[in-house]
Each structure stands twice: as C-alpha cells, then as structure tokens.
Amino acid sequence: MRTRLTAQMTAWGAVGLLVLTACAGDDSQQVEDGSSEDAVQDDSGTDDDQSVRDDSAAEDGADQDDRRAREGEDREHDQPGEEVPSGGSEQVPEDELPGEDVALYYEQGEELGVAGLDPEEAPLEVFDLPLDQDGDVVGELEPLDAVTVTGRQRQDPDDPEAGIWTEVELSDGYGWVDGGLTYFAGTEEVTEDYLDEVPPAEDAQTIAEGVAERAAGEGPDQQHGPEWTLISTPEDHGEDFYRLDVTGLQDDSVAGYRLFVTVAEAGEGFELAEVEQTQLCRRGVTDDGSCA
C-alpha cells in the first residue's frame, strides 16, 4: 500500500514538476518578452531623443540660414543694379573698328559697374563705335547701372586724350563707352574710421559729404588726386543711407570706394551712425572679395 501510494505520489510529483516547469517556462518567456518590449520602448525613447536633437539642429541651421539671408538682404546695396541696360546695336567686326586693340584687365563675360558718375551729368552715353563722340548713341548708363563686357577695348595711338573705350553688352546688342566702369569688390563696415573725424551737424547731407571728403583725403591745398561724387540721397531710392563714390586713387589695384553713409538724428541736428565701404577695383576681384 505504501508502495502504491509512494508510486502515486511520485507520479503526481512528476506531473507537478512538469506543470511547474511549463509554468516557469511561460513566465520566463513573459519576462523575456517583457524585456524585449522594454527594450523596444527604450529604443523608441532613444529615437525620440535623437529626433528632438535632429530637429533642434535643423532649427539652429535654419536660424543661421535666416541670419545669413538677413545679412545678405542688409547688403543688397553693395553691388550695382542687376538689370541689363536697354539699347545696343549689332556687333561690329574687329577689322572695321577704328583705332587699335588694347589689352587691359577686362575679360569677356565679366560684370563691371558705373562709378563716379554725377547724377547731374548722367547718363553715360553708349555709342555704336569706339573713339567717336559724334557717333550714334545706342544706349545710356545711369550711376547705378552694371554691364557685362565683351573683352574688347580700343584706343587711338595718335590721340591719348581720346581715352580707352570698352565694348559692353546691352539688352538688344552692343555698344562702346569711354571709361567710367570698374569692378566692385566686397563691402565692409568702417564706421570707426570716421566717428572721431566727422562731427555732428545741423544738416544730414553735410555729414555724408564729410565722410567722402576724408575718404578722398581732401585738404585745403589739394588740387589733384582723388575726388568724390554724391551718387544718391536716401530720398532718391527710398533707402536709409547716402551713396557716395570716391574715385581717382593713385593705386594700381584700388581705384576708389563706394561709400554708404547712414546718419541719425541727434538733439537738434544729426550725427554719423554707420559707414560701409565697397572697394572699386582696376584689375578685378579676388576670391576673398578684395581688389586683385
């Protein structure tokens, strides 16, 4: 009897062991599954954190791009106008041009701007042929115009006073101008160079002209050398600055400057607020934005 009971207990123990083993296996699987789910959740959390960091980096990059864009907008006045001036005629073959070819610095396809042109003396006339002030006028350039050059220039070897003429592209063809063009380089702020030199004044334009006078190095005994020209006032184009050109520098690289002078109200008059300066170059512009 004890033997049968022992056998039954042994059998029941074995069954129980199997059941416990099975249950333990299910519990282990659940634990493992739970661990997997936790891992998935952890991974998900990691992905979310990375996503947040990526979004933050993207926003930072966008903010930087916006700042660069705003800086670019602030300096849109740095360069001459972008529209191609109207006019032009058919290009004259080389063997039909008066004078002789002269090679300076202008290469085909380069853009040059008008510099030092007094608005009261504008426009700068564009002729159908070089070295002929009595020829047909095929276009006109204003003080803020820019043109693309063809690379062709002419001079009269027997008449140095005739100047060096440059062929330019207009909207409907080509034409020739007698000087007045230059490369425009990068722009920099130079306010500190003038704050102590240009005192407040009752008239705003007096301050702008004072900056140009000092940039040109004008003195009471100066008869030759650089000269300045008032190109525009704030009212002319709805801007907040005066535009002045200083030309005629005795330098084989820098021909002059275009100045952007901002004036602010101060008391009963005005004072100098900001000066930005663009170099005018004779031979071209380097990759870093300075005169070659």
Rank of each mutant, 00 (worst) to 15 (best):
D42G: 07
D145M: 05
P226G: 01
R68P: 04
L124V: 03
P160H: 06
Q29Y: 13
A122W: 03
H224D: 14
Q277P: 12
G179L: 03
E111Q: 12
T182S: 12
A185S: 10
A14L: 15
E83R: 11
D27M: 11
T286I: 00
P160R: 06
S171W: 01
H224W: 09
L18W: 12
G248Q: 03
S86L: 14
T182W: 01
E120D: 10
E82Q: 10
E227T: 08
P226I: 00
T10E: 13
P130D: 12
G210I: 12
E167C: 04
Q108Y: 03
A115V: 03
S232L: 03
E32D: 14
E227L: 05
H237R: 08
E189V: 05
G151Q: 02
T191R: 08
G186T: 01
F127K: 02
D63E: 14
A39K: 05
E76G: 12
D74E: 13
T21F: 15
A212C: 05
Q133G: 12
D245H: 00
V126G: 03
G267I: 06
P80A: 02
E83M: 11
D288G: 02
D240C: 04
D27R: 08
Q8R: 11
T191D: 08
A292D: 08
G99E: 11
D193A: 15
E121H: 02
I231Q: 00
D221A: 11
P93E: 06
M1H: 08
S232H: 00
P200C: 10
W12G: 14
A215W: 01
L230C: 01
E213I: 05
D158G: 12
L244Q: 01
F241D: 07
L195T: 14
E94S: 07
D38T: 08
H224G: 09
T148I: 10
G109V: 07
E90Q: 12
D60L: 15
E32G: 06
R282A: 07
V31M: 12
E209P: 11
S232I: 00
Q279P: 05
D193C: 01
A273E: 15
G186F: 01
H224L: 10
G173Y: 11
Q41G: 05
G81Q: 08
Q79Y: 10
Y242W: 12
D196H: 06
Y194Q: 11
D47E: 13
D47K: 10
R75T: 05
A57F: 15
Y242E: 08
E140M: 00
A122E: 02
G179D: 13
E265D: 13
V147I: 05
G284I: 06
G180W: 11
G219S: 10
D132N: 13
G219D: 09
E37D: 13
W165Y: 08
L244D: 01
Y174H: 14
E192S: 15
R258I: 00
E94R: 02
E235R: 03
E197D: 13
R2L: 14
S35Y: 13
D33W: 15
R258S: 00
E125S: 11
V285K: 11
D196W: 10
G135F: 04
D156I: 00
P85C: 06
L249I: 07
G109N: 09
D65A: 15
R243Y: 00
D158L: 09
R53H: 09
T21M: 14
F241I: 02
G16C: 14
R68T: 06
E125W: 08
Q279C: 03
W176D: 07
A216T: 00
E125I: 04
E227P: 01
T278Q: 09
G13K: 05
D60W: 13
